[in-house]
Design a protein around this nucleic acid. Structure first.
Length: 260
DNA sequence: ATGGCTTCATAGTGAAGA
């Protein structure tokens, strides 16, 4: 059994104790983190290594930043997307146990009519190309992270209100469909068709307590991993912490994986 | 209800997140 998770922590500095406690509690093998909001000089490498984890990170001051934490050795680290000139640190790609893992923090996009949305669309095109390249080179591929896309109306607390809004627009959902047509699977939906299964809730208006959320954090897997996937769950417990992240972790479980 | 809350930043008429 191997547990692989994604979690947008919204500042690793603020959330470090919560992340370390969560790793101890869940015994997670691999964790992709987004929104570090810390530069590489301040990444808390020792704290993870003291728990027996390896780390790879791609951070910057103030915003963005991604990392991968692993009980197994990390090799072939690729920072950013090689063919895309982007000062924002949103992607890191590594190999762990012969699985190519892409950890991504997708651009939010602010609003459909904004410049940031145009940046989001071009950025998504580049992530599609990068993922396709990885699939051409590797059989076992995982693309995980904060996608800032709710794939369908059952992933949204008020789909009428969110219709044509950023995170739910036809443009973003078309990209999602195109991405999955590379033969990737939304691992959460392999095991559940239940609506109202969310990974993010607004800090405001008691959104978590009122169950007003979105499912925007995902773990996508290639066919050989689909064959050994035995569960994918959303762990809402960290959202109940004092000073929580607004996102909560998603955990994929794989069976029969040779970790040598 | 164009607000609500949180973080990082600076001391703003804040910016950004989702």
């Amino acid at each position: 059994m191997m547990k692989i998770a994604t979690w947008n922590v919204n500042s690793l500095k603020v959330r470090l104790t919560q992340v370390l406690d969560w790793l101890k509690d869940t015994q997670c093998d691999v964790l992709g983190i987004q929104e570090l909001k810390c530069d590489n000089e301040h990444f808390p490498q020792n704290a993870f290594e003291e728990l027996g984890y390896h780390v790879a990170f791609n951070g910057q001051k103030t915003y963005n930043g991604v990392a991968i934490i692993s009980k197994y050795p990390i090799t072939d680290i690729c920072y950013d997307m090689p063919d895309y000139n982007d000062i924002q640190k949103r992607v890191i790609t590594v190999t762990i146990c012969d699985i190519r893992i892409i950890c991504a923090y997708v651009v939010n996009g602010e609003a459909i009519d904004s410049d940031k949305f145009q940046y989001k669309l071009s950025w998504l095109d580049e992530l599609y190309n990068h993922t396709q390249n990885m699939l051409n080179l590797h059989n076992r591929v995982i693309l995980l992270g904060d996608f800032n896309i709710a794939p369908s109306d059952i992933d949204v607390y008020d789909s009428a209100m969110w219709q044509d809004k950023v995170l739910c627009s036809d443009m973003e959902r078309s990209w999602w469909t195109k991405l999955l047509s590379l033969e990737l699977y939304d691992s959460f939906r392999l095991f559940s068709n239940e609506p109202k299964q969310y990974t993010w809730w607004d800090y405001r208006n008691f959104a978590f307590k009122r169950k007003l959320g979105l499912r925007i954090d995902h773990i996508l897997i290639s066919p050989p991993l689909k064959d050994i996937a035995c569960g994918c769950t959303i762990d809402t417990n960290p959202r109940k912490n004092e000073r929580p992240s607004d996102h909560t972790p998603v955990i994929l479980t794989l069976n029969h994986l040779n970790t040598k």
